[in-house]
Design a protein around this nucleic acid. Structure first.
Lengths: 201, 201
DNA sequence: TCATTTATGAGACTCCAGTCTTATGATGAG
DNA sequence: CTCATCATAAGACTGGAGTCTCATAAATGA
């Protein structure tokens, strides 16, 4: 099962297949939120489905768990009404992202590990949804520094808030969780302030 | 072979054991610099040593490769003579760290992946040597913002330069290698500039 | 040199990810 | 209702990481 034909779910007994897929994802989601990184076997058993069938739907453990990862779906995470001040807007997004990463840290770590796996994945495991949130927060800057710089800045902000930075600050630097979050927030603020004077190119 | 007694190398036939260990590390280093992430079996065979013996010296593939990782050993990476200007000092360290990470990216990724492994490691795979380099570069700031803030800032700088940030900017953000390095350098500069006004606590 | 200690080698074993084959049984078109 | 289609289940198989046992051979003290 190298690659699953992209319209596998759209041909033949589509309702049955959709049901099977949904059951797998539901079971995986349950086990994931219970706190561990389940094996495909465990997910399949919890769903009452055989292991080979699970592999018919997801090419790897990584893809299954990625598909089961609970998504926000939100297109904006700014408070309502959104603040006018740039640093407040960015800080709101940063706090949301940082606490979200912190709360789901085991899953974030698992996804990061899978994405670093020896075998390259076809499907992107990590989609970078938060970039758009930061771009939205930075909208007031777009006129002064340009869309390109806004995008670069959003990437830098996301990098500073992400699980990767958190992993290093925790595991190597040895900071406590609350210290990690505080430093990440400081980094975000620093990057925004600096971008007002010398934006990234 | 759960944990290797810490003085295993110091008891009994120490010369023979030192030789065996050195041969394993040498073989691993050769294979690593040749570009891949060798299996323990491959390292052992290249060293003319059996696989179980290799496991007698290193509890896991991760520890073997970590031990074989070529270290700089340098206690300072500032140019000689060191610049007086703070931002130049930091920029010099940052450029060194960033290019070093870039040049050894496959190994850096492998170490990161191992450090995220399901099984927690006893020995630290990643030692955070670069922190001291940044602290040294920031020495002129110590009087004004204090040792504690200098240390925090050094951690933030290292996080911004590291493989973790690089992985995200490459894999998720989709930046080209040269763009990644440029943005990392911009981040470092931004953090330093900001710390002059509002240092991290 | 001999005896004893002790590192090593050979190979079988477990566990998990992922693949493949074959047989069964549900689905839904007629 | 019937039957061909097609998703599924059962279970064997590969390959890699790591463990364990036991026999061998090399190093060292006498």
């Amino acid at each position: 099962m190298k690659t699953m034909s992209m319209d596998y779910l759209e041909s033949g007994r589509t309702r049955q297949k959709q049901r099977t897929r949904d059951q797998l994802i539901a079971a995986a989601r349950e086990l994931i939120t219970a706190g561990d990184t389940p094996r495909v076997e465990e997910v399949a058993e919890a769903a009452g489905i055989s292991r080979p069938t699970a592999y018919r739907y997801f090419a790897s453990q990584a893809e299954l768990l990625a598909a089961a990862y609970p998504e926000t779906g939100a297109t904006s995470v700014l408070p309502d009404p959104p603040p006018a001040a740039l640093d407040e807007r960015v800080a709101a997004v940063a706090r949301f992202v940082i606490s979200r990463v912190q709360e789901t840290e085991p899953q974030q770590r698992a996804m990061l590990r899978f994405s670093l796996g020896d075998v390259p994945h076809e499907l992107p495991l990590r989609k970078g949804r938060a970039i758009a949130w930061f771009v939205e927060a930075l909208a007031p800057m777009a006129d002064s520094i340009g869309d390109e710089s806004v995008h670069r800045l959003a990437l830098a902000l996301r990098a500073a808030c992400g699980i990767e930075t958190r992993v290093w600050l925790s595991d190597v630097a040895g900071l406590a969780p609350v210290e990690v979050s505080a430093l990440q927030e400081w980094m975000v603020d620093a990057l925004v302030q600096r971008a007002l004077e010398t934006p990234p190119t």
